[in-house]
């Protein structure tokens, strides 16, 4: 490198490039930049040792601390759970009707109950308790087995026709299949039910004799027996005369498992409170 030009003012070499009279200087970089660069390389080597780094064709180096972002995440979620455990004691002691009086406990139960519901109940009752044909809507104000906190808790705990000793159970007779009433009577009572339980025809007589014991004299239902309300616009197994006739002929019966044993006591209380809130809280 002979003939290297130097800048007059600074004494620094130039690269020999010049644009519009501006010369490009070849200023040396500070040495510590170079050292910083080396330090980064050393850091990287340390990183390879400590953290998962090098892949092979079938595996990868795991690093001495065995770091995994997903394990880290799981740990964090566990910590969150643990920090919430102080609440659990309060849930164990109190019963549902006391819990809902404490606004903090209520909010906590609602959050926990929502998560539990989405995981365990939503497959049948739908997210938010929107229901599906054959699976009762939990978001409305029509309750087959009662909509108070205590009745809901009992339903959740022991189930409906679940086989549990304390299950809720009832059975509607197979009026058609077993020939308990005639086809004409079935048609009459179906018309009477569809027609809003009004009029004085044969339907009313059949209803009073056969149906009123479970569905109530006025058809408003008897929640303590699980007799559905027939006077409103909410139909579990479908609206319309055909659906009513089908149910009279050979009734379908819903089944819900008992959650006692599947969910712990606190979870049952939380999910009951959440379900209760879905219906607006009777």
């Amino acid at each position: 490198m002979a003939n290297v030009e130097k800048d007059a003012l600074t004494g620094t070499e130039t690269t020999g490039h010049s644009w519009d009279g501006i010369q490009e200087l070849n200023t040396p970089l500070p040495k510590w930049w170079l050292y910083t660069f080396y330090a980064c390389i050393i850091w990287a080597v340390g990183y390879w040792v400590v953290y998962p780094a090098w892949p092979s064709l079938s595996d990868y180096t795991k690093g001495v601390i065995g770091y995994s972002s997903r394990a880290e995440h799981a740990k964090e979620m566990e910590a969150v759970k643990a920090s919430r455990s102080e609440w659990l004691g309060k849930f164990e002691e109190a019963n549902v009707s006391d819990i809902v009086k404490d606004s903090q406990l209520l909010n906590y139960a609602m959050a926990g109950g929502r998560a539990l519901f989405n995981e365990n109940c939503a497959p049948c009752h739908g997210a938010g308790g929107q229901g599906a044909p054959g699976f009762p809507v939990l978001a409305d104000d029509d309750w087959l087995w009662g909509g108070t906190l205590e009745s809901i808790e009992q339903s959740v705990r022991f189930g409906i026709r679940s086989g549990h000793e304390e299950e809720r159970v009832n059975e509607m007779p197979k009026y058609g299949v077993d020939g308990l009433i005639t086809k004409e009577e079935m048609a009459a009572v179906a018309d009477y039910v569809i027609g809003g339980l009004q009029g004085d025809g044969a339907g009313k007589t059949v209803f009073a004799e056969q149906c009123a014991a479970c569905h109530g004299e006025d058809g408003h239902g008897l929640p303590e027996m699980g007799g559905p309300n027939l006077s409103d616009g909410i139909w579990l197994f479908g609206a319309g005369k055909d659906a009513v006739l089908a149910q009279l002929n050979s009734p379908k019966h819903g089944v819900m498992p008992a959650w006692q044993g599947r969910l712990d006591d606190v979870s049952i209380k939380q999910v009951s409170i959440y379900v209760h809130s879905l219906g607006g809280g009777q």
Binding site: M1, E13, T27, L29, P30
Partner: peptide
């Protein structure tokens, strides 16, 4: 003639 690339 040949200045270093890095300056102390």
């Amino acid at each position: 003639g040949d200045q270093p690339m890095y300056a102390g």
